[in-house]
């Protein structure tokens, strides 16, 4: 393990602020997968997600001196990711509605039929899961990702998304229910194999 890998995020930030800007690459390496995953939850395609994620890291770099260490660096970074992705969505005028309406149900049907074509090759629980998450509203997908993979508490998620922890709790519960619904729709007969 290299010297940089042993350092905490805060140590690396102090080094960057002291003038050793090359150290920032270690911070990027540590958080890029998660930031990219969050970005993909919004953008729904890799190219846009990569653009959002890069933008986040540049914004974080510019504002590194303003990072107050009252919260985790990751929480601060996810706040930037959320706001960047939201403005990206606004710019692109993407449809951020959930798939509860009629139009989206049609999308779902298409999705399922596309999926069935590749079923033999991609028969994996994670493929089903990612598809179900993709069908959720971006905010629901982000809350689920932050909670299960971001090692973030409800308070920290609330901080990142500018919500109270109670709101996050309610939204997480609803998002999980919606996810379950989407999974059941997708899996149909495959559920038995999954469990």
């Amino acid at each position: 393990m290299s010297y940089m890998q042993q350092q905490t995020d805060e140590d690396l930030i102090a080094e960057v602020l002291a003038g050793n800007t090359a150290v920032y690459s270690e911070l990027v390496k540590r958080h890029q997968r998660f930031v990219f995953t969050l970005a993909i939850r919004f953008a729904k395609n890799r190219e846009d997600a990569e653009e959002i994620a890069q933008d986040c890291f540049i914004k974080a770099y510019r504002g590194l001196a303003t990072y107050k260490q009252s919260s985790k660096f990751s929480t601060w970074l996810y706040t930037i990711t959320y706001t960047t992705a939201m403005s990206f969505l606004r710019k692109k005028r993407m449809n951020t509605q959930s798939i509860d309406d009629e139009e989206n149900t049609l999308q779902l049907e298409n999705h399922v039929s596309d999926f069935n074509a590749n079923l033999v090759e991609q028969k994996s629980a994670h493929v089903y899961l990612n598809m179900a998450i993709d069908m959720l509203a971006p905010e629901d997908a982000v809350i689920i990702t932050l909670f299960y993979k971001g090692e973030q508490s409800l308070d920290e998620i609330g901080m990142a998304l500018s919500m109270t922890s109670n709101t996050v709790k309610v939204k997480l519960h609803r998002a999980r229910l919606k996810l379950k619904e989407k999974l059941q729709l997708l899996l149909k007969d495959e559920v038995k194999e999954l469990i």
């Binding site: 890029q32 994620a53 994670h126 689920i144 993979k149 379950k180 999974l183």
Partner: peptide
Amino acid sequence: IDELLKSMELEEPSMSFTRNVMEQA
């Protein structure tokens, strides 16, 4: 569902991601 979500894998950006960010930085 909880188990499935916990074992969910994160997406991987392109190989040049860090280099691109550092060039911009």
